[in-house]
Design a protein around this nucleic acid. Structure first.
Lengths: 246, 246
DNA sequence: CAGACATAGCGTATTTTATACGTTAACCTC
DNA sequence: GAGGTTAACGTATAAAATACGCTATGTCTG
């Protein structure tokens, strides 16, 4: 990290689960450290040890900013992983000790999840400076350290959140999107399939979706009207959900 | 803590938000360290610095076990508080340094929440060995350090959880309870009021509630039938909730 | 340039769930 | 035994979820 001044705390780190959406599938931003002789040549989550006397939240922000060049992205705490055996592999330990010039024992890592509009992300910068690329979430079966477990937790929380807070979905969509895009994102995250006619009927009730005078172009079927998401209306018109399940 | 052998990590702690229910109101277990000349004479959450190379989860369990004498209680991670200015008061810092014989800078604290059946808890032990007592959640307006904020986060999460996972409610109820007790717990946690006739209609659909051949005694009104919670049926009969809100 | 094809987009019928509220039952206290 | 209090059952209406038929409008292909 470019931050300096204070030392790293050898027992505290942050890791970021960064989600994106390409209109069809859910994506995750991962770092490939192939070519580093000490590492285990697996993909890993972006993250860092935390410098002493630094806010955790602020540090997660910093990691993301440096990685993507993006500011003010959606970023929220996910979970803290604190098993004593998190770093069980010797080569993992050595890689961390070499990278940060500290001697480590157990590292407690607080994971964050971030939602990015892929069309805003600077993919060149990501690739050039961090070997970071978007991967299909469904294609990932293993990651370095306990990062696969962290990713799964991220998916769990994303699923839960989406049920009550649809804004989660719109954080992933570009400024202009079709109702089909929205359905795709719901299906990608929840794993359910929805009847397209009923799905759009439901969306039709939402006051925060503004139809634009613009349609899809170049698709081999009837082009869909594009919509934009009205954040202000979203927060003003959403009614309190006074409901529970038995 | 009775644990020994390894040193405390001066930058990692756990705090526990312990909820209970007395049939009517939501309670929280707090420690009163009045009489300690260094502390700020406010109530605080039970918690502890974590020894090096110890699981966070395991340590939260340990804190609870020592406090309440209870084993296998419901315990789940809540949130991690990692602002650089968490311990802004000098006397708080001094109290911690004295108690654990370590020199501290910023402490990252992972909070857990626990749900206790009050009738199982050993109140004498709690009071004798830790000055811990049950307080009405609604009566608490301030706590030591950032513990009030942590309690609020606990309440938030409890509210969220209860919507989808009613088991949360039954963790707080004794083995035998009335439907009214269930309604009270829902109202205490969510802050909503429910129509009693509709509420019990909804509960009537739940397969996991077993009516017992037993009624309330000594109440100045028609005595209610008592029920027990069937954990197995709960997990077997609950249908997947395939629903979202716009 | 006609017809196939694919998704957008509108509508209707049915079932399920939520909400509102009337009424009787069983215990206690005085 | 009258009055107070909550339990327990029932009915009627409104709202939401679900299932599914059908037309519209673009591109692609022969």
């Amino acid at each position: 990290m470019s931050d300096s001044g204070t030392q790293y705390n050898p027992s505290i780190s942050v890791d970021c689960v960064v989600f994106g959406f390409d209109g069809k599938n859910l994506k995750i931003l991962l770092i490939d450290q192939n070519g580093d002789s000490l590492n285990n040549s697996k993909l890993k989550l972006p993250g860092s040890l935390v410098r002493k006397n630094r806010d955790l939240d602020e540090y997660a922000d910093l990691v993301l900013k440096e990685l993507t060049g993006l500011d003010n992205v959606f970023l929220r705490q996910l979970y803290t992983f604190g098993s004593a055996d998190r770093i069980s592999l010797k080569r993992d330990r050595e890689w961390i000790e070499k990278t940060y010039s500290v001697s480590i024992r157990r590292i407690v890592s607080t994971a964050y999840y971030s939602l990015i509009k892929i069309d805003h992300s600077n993919e060149e910068l990501m690739e050039r400076s961090h070997n970071a690329r978007w991967y299909d979430v469904s294609s990932i079966t293993t990651l370095a350290l306990d990062h696969y477990k962290i990713m799964q937790k991220g998916l769990d929380v994303l699923r839960q959140e989406l049920r009550f807070n649809p804004i989660i979905g719109f954080e992933l969509l570009p400024e202009k999107f079709s109702l089909r895009n929205v359905q795709n994102i719901y299906e990608a995250i929840t794993g359910n399939k929805y009847d397209n006619r009923n799905f759009r009927k439901k969306l039709g009730q939402a006051k925060y979706l503004t139809p634009l005078n613009e349609k899809q172009k170049g698709v081999a079927h009837k082009p869909a009207v594009l919509y934009s998401f009205d954040k202000e209306k979203y927060f003003n018109t959403r009614k309190e959900i006074n409901l529970f399940y038995i």
